[in-house]
Design a protein around this nucleic acid. Structure first.
Lengths: 330, 330
DNA sequence: CTGTTAGCGCGTTCAC
DNA sequence: GTGAACGCGCTAACAG
């Protein structure tokens, strides 16, 4: 495989000139430029980027830590990250951690060992996080409150409160929740929003109305079983993502209840499918791609050594009312 | 940042010994090994992987070319790739091409310039593909028939024929199709399967029954409008993915038709949501993760310079009958 | 504008 | 078992 020295020899010039011709063509005489081009073409020379990176000590790579890439929300965030990174000449290394701290640690090691310049973490921060054990440049996308490093997120508590207030306005007083895993920070933020909203309406918190899910379809169905067996069944259920909302709807319907006539269901995330399923889903739309873009921009600033004015971005969400919620039956 | 030389100085040894201590600890005296460890810890030394890669000329990285990472099917394939790659000590670089040949070319350049050792292409092969312009080690996941390089795929035509045969067995004679883009090889393979199946049943092909979609939700809705206006409406519709099937169902229902009583709808891919929407979806399940795993294994063999026995894997699919299809109404 | 040269951090000789 | 020295491909610095 041809090296820059081969090109130099072929063109009858020195390696320094070739190098300059590639990076600063305007600083090389047109005559020699032509020679260089000819030699490159003849030898089919491709600069070895591995050497370039080694030389420049810049990997121009960021790693994205994601608990599960098959989750649509994460995939969209990544899409946003990729767009910004690509534009800035950065590559993105995919770090599917499968929720394992060990794997997470391995990816963190990549920036310690210079394979990557920084990390974007899509996993919400918990205390067992390996980050930031060292002084690693990292930002948290989909962060929750109190993330100890730069983050981009939405106001999870506020968005939840908004949904709950809407359900209250429809006359619902017993509002169930299908949550994420209890130790997930998003779960906690959203529970806080729920409690805030019902407290403001003078309703006391009933823990039995909160059923733990895990953000997957199956857990929505399980939760429904619990609700159905209750003596005092809720008249509305807020689900912490759309997957669980969709399966909850199926669960209620299969049990002979109509949605939204007999029971209202609201979701979170606004997946694409949420406007095409039946009934269509009332939900919170997170600006997933934008979260990715903002995170990437923030990280790139950090890598460049700049100190950004903001290190915590709270992006706007949307509350979308569709067909799965209605006024409580009298 | 500490280098191997710093460690050598600290330990009172030479760089060569340190290097050996790291790669072949058993070939260094225990006494010195201890010194090395102490020095490493004291200086918080981390080997510079960028240098290692440069030195070894091995990037241990593969790039995955994907048209759209926010597509669940692709995301699952990637998940499978990631698992195998990680296990083999490889990193995966995400190449979101946004369906642009220019971006595709850029990623291909990464393997030409040594940044990556190989490519897995999730975009079905078309003639305008930039691959394999050079002798690049690449494999096509989700390949279609006649892909000119190693590939992993399912039998698209056969799977489609299976769905159609099932619909025929239910008494349907006019079977509509919502396809992918016409120039997509998967579209072509599946159309072939459709034609084969109806021909075997003695039905002549009516092109007006095939409506072009684009694999997105919205196009399913558009296609439905065309079907509804037909004088002779189909009694069943085969959709080339579940997204379009779900939105088609919504379209029919909104138009006052019942699914499956008035019209049957079948999909392709078996998204998670397909067992939770209403009605649940009759569909073809592709082994997405397995496709990813197989592709990664194949590519790694190729990279290692082995010649695999097989260069075309056709994996088994599943035909899943659920609630969206029923016997034709008399 | 061009050529020469040093050295990035590491692994790998080959003497000792 | 160990250490000194070289070179991977490239860029930067300086001299011409």
């Amino acid at each position: 495989m041809a090296t820059i020295r081969d090109v130099a020899k072929e063109a009858g010039l020195s390696t320094g000139t070739i190098s300059k011709a590639l990076s600063n063509p305007e600083r090389v005489s047109p005559k020699n430029l032509a020679k260089v081009e000819a030699a490159i073409k003849k030898l089919n020379y491709k600069p070895n980027m591995l050497s370039q990176k080694f030389r420049s000590k810049q990997s121009n790579t960021i790693v994205v830590l994601v608990p599960d890439i098959a989750n649509v929300f994460f995939a969209k965030v990544i899409s946003g990250i990729e767009a910004v990174a690509q534009n800035a000449g950065y590559s993105v290394l995919l770090g599917d951690t499968k929720d394992s701290p060990v794997r997470e640690a391995e990816f963190i090691k990549m920036v310690e060992t210079r394979l990557a310049d920084g990390i974007i973490n899509l996993r919400p921060y918990t205390s067992d996080s390996q980050l930031p054990q060292q002084d690693i440049t990292a930002v948290s996308a989909t962060g929750s409150e109190n993330t100890p490093y730069p983050s981009v997120r939405i106001d999870n508590a506020g968005a939840t409160a908004q949904v709950i207030e809407y359900l209250l306005s429809l006359g619902h007083r017993r509002i169930g929740v299908i949550s994420g895993l209890n130790d997930n920070p998003h779960t906690q933020d959203r529970i806080a929003g729920y409690q805030r909203a019902i407290a403001a309406a003078g309703i006391t918190f009933d823990p039995s109305l909160v059923v733990e899910g895990d953000f997957n379809f199956a857990s929505g169905l399980n939760a429904v079983r619990q609700f159905i067996q209750m003596k005092e069944r809720p008249t509305a259920v807020f689900c912490m993502n759309d997957e669980m909302a969709i399966s909850a709807i199926k669960g209620f319907v299969d049990a002979g209840l109509r949605v939204p006539e007999d029971i209202s269901v609201a979701g979170f995330d606004d997946m694409d499918v949420s406007s095409y399923c039946r009934p269509t889903l009332t939900t919170i739309a997170q600006p997933a791609e934008q979260i990715g873009e903002q995170s990437a921009e923030l990280l790139l600033e950090l890598i460049a050594g700049k100190t950004p004015q903001q290190t915590e971005y709270v992006l706007a969400h949307d509350f979308i009312v569709r067909g799965s919620t209605a006024a409580v039956r009298q």
